[in-house]
Design a protein around this nucleic acid. Structure first.
Lengths: 336, 336
DNA sequence: TGGTCGCCTGGAAGCGCTCCCAGTTTCGGA
DNA sequence: TCCGAAACTGGGAGCGCTTCCAGGCGACCA
């Protein structure tokens, strides 16, 4: 870099050029009242002439507001964010932040360093608010976050406690929908492959499965716990086939696992949906391209991001929003 | 929010508690020399006791360094970031930033507001550096960015000019690889569906296709321009079928388009790879699940992110790195 | 024992902006 | 014509930190 930083033009220069005091200039920049029309225009002209842009840092220091919020993903897996899920969340978040003056910071707290950073963030107001996602069950940060003195909204409800502010997809309702769909299709020996049981989504989806079968008066004991991953899905399906070879329907708590399961089913010579019907969860892009295309539950991911951002904004504004559960819906394709 | 912001503890308090001057305290915080062992330890103890964490804003104002870099995606499509591609880039970027003290800010410049923000960012040093992606051909910001007085590295080379600092995947080489693969499989009437020709990746991949066919002495005139999208791929394939029904191989510049094309081919009663062999580009997750699984070109996306971040760091450190082209490789599956 | 060098040390001046406050105008109403 | 209220105006004190600088002090060499 050539080090010719043409020094940034400051408010003082604007004021001088406009022939007013710095205070007056500041007022027009923030369009506050108490400045005459003439001076206001003079300042505005000076701003344009000089190409003045306020220094965000200085402003932040003076106002004690950072002007940025952070989206933090806490996880032990460095690759979590590679999940397209988060990309969509970000799009949603961005769409509402775009209407404000707030910047978006990303914090992938996947290492010890990252966790430390997140912790400091929570206790020292380095941001005006934080959106926190993907807390797994035993994360001590969850509790800390919920009573931090900086506004925090959770994306997804942690498994072991309910934060004051969160927005979540209706995982339980979605799982119920999925299972009911299987029941309605005449399946009677319905199994499930759950997600990680230390995540809110994992337990909630399992609960939905149980509820639906209870209502239908069917046996809900064909259960294997998975981990949301494709390989995990394969392993779980193998186990299921070994222990409950009579099954004729499976609700699988993620499409990734469903893809793995589909492969195992195929290798085992079972037809889908002929021998066994499958419903997944998430509606990832690949779900449309499997053989057969996967019936699944879609969550409004961008909305989730959008609503998290809105809730955070409302919190920052000093309001007290109530938790929000977003509806999920069934996408029927050919695996059922 | 309860508004009991227990005021942040300041450096002055630390200094007082340690019985030293603020300057001394500052020195030990930044572990600078010229402070006796005794005082150094006293300060360190005070820091722990008080739970002191430096105020990043104040520090930024004093040092004239923001302590954050931004990853900016410039595009006219609000949904670009939903592409899993960027999620992976972010993972890569984060992995190197994690080792530093720098924060990561995300700027999705998809609206007028966003573009304005990006422009201001480029001219007013609101960040210590910026990584810029997805510039399409006629974006005036590209030129501006390249001579901004803040370090900028491009991700992907814009179509109409070569920035001073960039890292890109070897799109041309990858396309050549893909086309050569088709040639090696004995195909002789090889078409291509290109990407958007106002993006660097689009033109580069087209060039690679031309080169490979030139070397093989084959006709390179079976060309339809697409837009990288699935629907665009369908439309392009229809056109190709209508105008060049004799084709026996197609290099398609993105997997998304390939998926669309596959559907059209199937509807038209053509078998893959029997009648026509297909090679895509990107190796998206879905590519493994299509029918048949797609032969494609993989780019090292996380590396791209990582190298962009590294280059930016080196730029910030005052060095002068050279542009970087990352290798791509062929993933052979059953569509060829 | 005197002089010099080099390492501490803390005071103070900013970094660029906001905002309180006291002083000055202006203006309408009586 | 006079008075009070309301609107304007600019000075100045911070926000919390870094860093320059001048002064102090011990050590080391001759």
């Amino acid at each position: 870099m050539t080090d010719i930083h043409k020094r940034q033009v400051t408010l003082d220069e604007v004021a001088e050029r406009a022939g007013v005091s710095r205070s007056a200039a500041s007022r027009v920049i923030n369009n506050a009242p108490h400045v005459s029309k003439a001076k206001r225009e003079a300042v505005q002209r000076a701003v344009v002439d000089l190409g003045y842009v306020p220094n965000a840092t200085a402003r932040a220091l003076a106002t004690q507001q950072v002007g940025a919020v952070v989206l933090a993903i806490s996880s032990d897996n460095p690759q979590v964010f590679a999940d397209p899920f988060f990309a969509e969340v970000v799009v949603g978040v961005n769409s509402v932040l775009e209407e404000t003056e707030l910047e978006l910071m990303l914090l992938l707290a996947t290492s010890t360093r990252g966790q430390t950073r997140l912790e400091q963030l929570l206790r020292t107001r380095q941001a005006d608010g934080v959106m926190l996602m993907s807390m797994h069950g035993d994360d001590p940060l969850a509790a800390l976050a919920d009573k931090a003195d900086v506004p925090v909204v959770f994306g997804g409800c942690p498994v072991n406690f309910e934060p004051r502010y969160y927005v979540d997809a209706d995982n339980r309702g979605g799982a119920r929908l999925a299972t009911e769909h299987l029941v309605a299709a005449g399946r009677t020996r319905i199994a499930t492959i759950t997600g990680r049981m230390d995540e809110g989504a994992g337990t909630a989806r399992y609960k939905g499965y149980q509820e639906a079968l209870a209502v239908a008066g069917l046996d809900a004991s064909r259960v294997v716990h998975g981990d949301f991953s494709e390989d995990g899905g394969s392993r779980a399906m193998e186990e299921l086939l070994a222990t409950h070879s009579d099954l004729d329907g499976v609700f699988i708590a993620s499409d990734q696992m469903a893809i793995g399961a589909l492969r195992v089913l195929k290798d085992a010579g079972k037809t889908v949906p002929g021998d066994v019907a499958i419903v997944g969860f998430n509606d990832i892009t690949s779900a449309r391209h499997t053989e057969p295309p996967l019936t699944t539950i879609a969550q409004p991911i961008q909305s989730l991001g959008r609503e998290m951002a809105r809730m955070l904004l409302s919190l920052i504004a000093g309001e007290t929003p109530t938790p929000l559960i977003l509806p999920t819906r069934l996408i029927a394709r050919s695996s059922t």
